[in-house]
């Protein structure tokens, strides 16, 4: 799985960080998403999918497979 985040769409809601703190963080200055793990390990996949599904900005894209 590959994760791509779009900073321009991110509205800083922090949902991704609450759900998958190992994969996402937020910048201290403005709350915008920071991707910690572009290729998260298997056991994080379901949390990452949940984060992408609920992100209010639709800022998280996933490339499954690979």
């Amino acid at each position: 799985m590959k994760v791509i985040v779009d900073e321009a769409k991110c509205c800083g809601a922090g949902q991704c960080v609450l759900i998958a703190p190992e994969v996402f963080d937020q910048r201290d200055e403005d709350g915008i998403v920071v991707l910690l793990e572009p290729e998260p390990a298997e056991d994080r996949h379901s949390a990452v999918r949940e984060a992408a599904a609920v992100c209010p900005g639709a800022a998280i894209q996933l490339a499954e497979g690979s």
């Binding site: 809601a13 609450l18 937020q26 200055e29 403005d30 709350g31």
Partner: peptide, 14 residues
């Protein structure tokens, strides 16, 4: 504006 104020609403701060 959201980014200036949003830094107070990060998951970490919560």
């Amino acid at each position: 504006w959201r980014r200036l104020v949003g830094k107070w609403f990060t998951a970490k701060r919560m």
